[in-house]
Amino acid sequence: MTVSEQDLRHLRRAVDLAAEAAAAGDGAFGSVLVDADGVERFADRNREQSTGDPTRHPEFEIARWAAVHLTPAERAIATVYTSGEHCPMCAAAHAWVGLGRIVFAASSAQISDWRAEWGAPVPPVAVLPITAVAPGITVDGPVDAFGAEVRGLLAGPSADA
């Protein structure tokens, strides 16, 4: 896994968006789409609770936006930075629209283990790595520098991080 200083800057932005989501009462997830020149093209945060729509994941919103605003060639060389590894729904959307590399702070396995420690409900879909859903995607993560912070955000203010 090779994560550059530029990758860390964009991942920092994704984690900051996760903090924004948590502060708004949504799940602590944030994501950023960056083009081949390193320019942020789209960013979003989780909006499940605030909208009542359980599909309002930032990675899914990125896929929707990219399908409309980027050419297939631009999508293929773009990178998505995200606080947590894509769920199966988001990994599939990413692959279907032809987005490129993914860099994530915390893996789905880590997040699943943390949630089990906290006694959180089991999610309604299987916890799978991105490459199990979309085997052709280049993936870098988890990035340990953000692990404790993401864990704390997901734990919320009343849980022990």
Results as ranks from 00 to 15, higher is better:
N46A: 15
S108W: 00
V143I: 15
H86L: 15
D53I: 01
H86P: 02
G147L: 11
W96C: 11
A23T: 08
G141Q: 03
A66Y: 03
G38Y: 03
G100S: 11
W65H: 07
F104M: 08
A148C: 15
L33R: 09
D37Q: 14
E61I: 10
A155L: 08
N46C: 14
N46E: 13
S83W: 00
I137W: 08
D53C: 01
T82E: 01
G119T: 08
V80C: 01
L128T: 02
E61K: 07
L99V: 02
W114T: 02
E61G: 13
A95N: 06
G119D: 09
V150I: 07
R64T: 15
A93K: 04
A23V: 08
D35R: 04
G38I: 03
S83R: 00
F60W: 15
T79H: 05
G147M: 12
E74V: 03
P124H: 10
G27Q: 15
Y81M: 06
F104G: 03
T55W: 14
C90A: 09
P123K: 11
C87R: 00
W65P: 02
I62S: 04
A132H: 03
R115G: 02
E85K: 00
G100V: 05
L153T: 04
G30N: 06
S107D: 05
S83N: 02
A93D: 03
A92D: 09
D140I: 14
G25H: 03
V125S: 07
P129I: 08
D113Y: 15
R115H: 12
F146Q: 09
D44K: 13
P121K: 05
T131W: 00
F146V: 15
A22R: 08
A95P: 04
V97E: 00
Q49D: 11
V133N: 02
A23L: 04
C90R: 01
G147H: 10
A134L: 00
V103M: 15
T79D: 07
L128N: 04
F146L: 07
G152D: 09
A132P: 01
A116K: 13
T55I: 11
W118R: 14
W118Y: 12
G38H: 03
A43W: 05
A93T: 01
T138I: 14
A109F: 12
A116W: 13
A66D: 05
T51I: 12
G84F: 12
G27N: 12
V122C: 06
S50W: 11
V127P: 03
A63S: 01
R151E: 05
G136W: 04
W118C: 05
G100Q: 07
P124Y: 08
E59G: 00
V127C: 01
S50I: 11
I62L: 06
T55M: 11
V150E: 05
F42P: 01
D35I: 10
P58K: 08
A66R: 00
M89A: 13
D37E: 15
V34C: 01
V39A: 14
A76K: 05
S83F: 01
E61Q: 12
R115A: 11
D26W: 08
A109P: 12
E59F: 01
R45G: 12
A92N: 09
Q110C: 05
Q110T: 07
F146H: 04
V143P: 02
G98M: 05
F29K: 11
